[in-house]
Design a protein around this nucleic acid. Structure first.
Lengths: 337, 337
DNA sequence: ATGAAAGCGCTAACAG
DNA sequence: CTGTTAGCGCTTTCAT
């Protein structure tokens, strides 16, 4: 692969000149500019990004940290991030942490030594303040979906309004006539789930419907645990007439359990999800759900991060943290009535 | 961030010495070694990977090129790649090409300038010989799932035995008593689908069952096209008594269409998929399918690639191309009988 | 408008 | 066993 030097020699100018025309930063005599350009074309010259990064202290690379790309909501988010990153000349490195704080820490350290320009994080459970630490060190960072109260105002965040989404969901179920709404509660460590819980409670209260602790199914060890909990709930003296699942995959498990119980959806009980994962429209019956704009969430995060990076280039410091909240929609399909 | 130089000064030795102890390549006086190590510890020194790569011409980074991480089979493959890469000290950067040869080409060029050590490719439709070109240039590369006859023996490949899988699938359906087996045929440009088609035809022939062109549903413009084709097939004078879908998502669409038609699965018709994507066990009824070891496919690819990289380091050239074939299993669930 | 020179952080001969 | 030197490919003052 030809380098700056080779093409400089071939044209009979200095490497600096070639660098100048390639980067278009400084004026160069039009005649030589053309000659250089011709040679660049001819040799299909591509600048060595590593050398450039080393020199500049900027790699045009961002890191996307998530629990696992296997989780259905992350592929679209990841595409959102990549699509805008690419459009802006950035490369993205994806890291799966498996929710392990140690792995996350290791990755972050490693990435710093690659002169990574910034981080998009969806991996924290909220307790480890990675993002805040990063920001304190001057690293651009943005939290997507997963963050806590403490992060707000301290670091950039992107998410939907989880409280509102759950409120809307619950109110809808109520309006459909449900009165005993079971809740499939995700990992309570996560702020986003606590927010959805709040939305659920608030909607119940606003409608004057009693909250029943026996109807809140608390995840223990994965989504599969909802299979058994669903059966137990249905065995209650006054069983649920609806299930609100805090994520679509939980709804899938619930529907499965209900099916095995011979309970009809939605005739006997309604099921409502949250996320609008691509498969939710493909199952039987198609799942009603609260849609999160997954791709946009990723795109917004990347935009936010790139804004920080550029701002830092210019002003030498990070811009004040911004909060982005996207809207959710209620998608009514056939699992509710 | 402290560099080699800083810690060298602090200890009172030369940078080379520090480099030596850090890399453990050469013997260093035990006493100084300890002092250096102590300082390394204390300053939490992390070598600048970029500088190292630039010097060595090796980045310890590999590139995973796929159509889109949104496609259900890729997340597990991607995890397989990442897991073994990480274990071996490699970072992976993921590129989504959306099946666009131009995007792929651009990505490849870009990655070369990052001194990428090698490529795992699942993105080609077979016609563009990216992998062969790469190999010719001396770049380690391995093809996963998607490749053609021409690639065999020319470049490293990793895949399941698609012919055998489809043969097994079809034979199973036949043994269950089906005689009119419709086939949901994926993109015929892809060798892997043509292989599955061969397996289907062979099994039919071996069983002495007539091949009926009207039963082969050829994808046109996405999986959703199978919805309509399923309806049409069921409207035939002698409709199918089974569907063999060349991928699980196609099976989902078929099941959906069948459901809307009021056809019962598996009582009226059987449906069999291919891939064993994680959701196939969660739908109603749970889908019988041919399981591809997705995670292992990725892991095997990464191993193969790393082997090439190491071999090249040592011998200055690539090892002869190897072919890895993994086994598939028939998973009988409840969509067939 | 252009060239010379220094240096980003690291490694690898080559001396000693 | 350890220090000196050169250089990976690029950008950027600073001269000219």
């Amino acid at each position: 692969m030809a380098g700056l030097k080779e093409i400089a020699e071939a044209v009979g100018v200095s490497p600096s000149t070639v660098s100048r025309v390639v980067n278009g930063k400084s004026y160069v005599n039009e005649a030589t500019r053309q000659k250089v350009l011709a040679m660049v074309e001819q040799t299909r010259y591509q600048p060595n990004v590593l050398a450039k990064s080393l020199k500049l202290g900027r790699s045009n690379t961002i890191c996307l940290m998530l629990p696992s790309i296997d989780n259905l909501i992350f592929p679209p988010i990841s595409r959102g991030v990549e699509d805008v990153a690419r459009k802006n000349g950035f490369t993205v490195v994806l890291c799966n942490t498996d929710e392990d704080a140690e792995i996350e820490r290791t990755y972050i350290e490693k990435m710093k030594t690659r002169l990574i320009d910034g981080f998009v994080l969806c991996s924290g459970n909220g307790r480890n303040g990675s993002a805040r630490a990063l920001r304190k060190e001057g690293f651009p960072a943005v939290l997507v979906n997963r963050f806590t109260e403490e992060d707000l105002g301290q670091v950039d965040t992107v998410a939907v309004d989880n409280f509102q989404g759950a409120y809307t969901a619950t109110r809808y179920l109520l309006r459909c006539g449900s009165r005993r709404i079971a809740l499939a509660y995700g990992d309570e460590e996560l702020y986003l789930y606590r927010e959805r819980y709040r939305g659920y409670c608030q909607a119940l209260q606003d409608a004057g419907v009693a909250y029943d602790e026996r109807l809140v199914l608390r995840e223990m060890g994965g989504n599969d645990s909802f299979y058994q909990m669903t059966r137990e709930a249905m065995a209650l003296p006054d069983p649920p007439d609806a299930f609100f699942a805090m994520s679509d995959p939980k709804a899938f498990v619930i529907m499965h359990a209900l099916h095995d119980l011979g309970v009809r959806i939605p005739q006997d009980v309604s099921v409502l999800g949250f996320d609008n994962v691509s498969l939710s429209s493909m199952i039987e019956p198609p799942l009603s759900t609260i849609s999160q704009p997954l791709h946009e969430l990723g795109a917004a995060a990347a935009k936010c991060l790139i804004r920080q990076i550029l701002y830092k280039d210019k002003h030498g410091e990070l811009p004040p943290p911004a909060r982005t909240v996207l809207d959710v929609d209620l998608i009514v399909r056939q699992s509710t009535n």
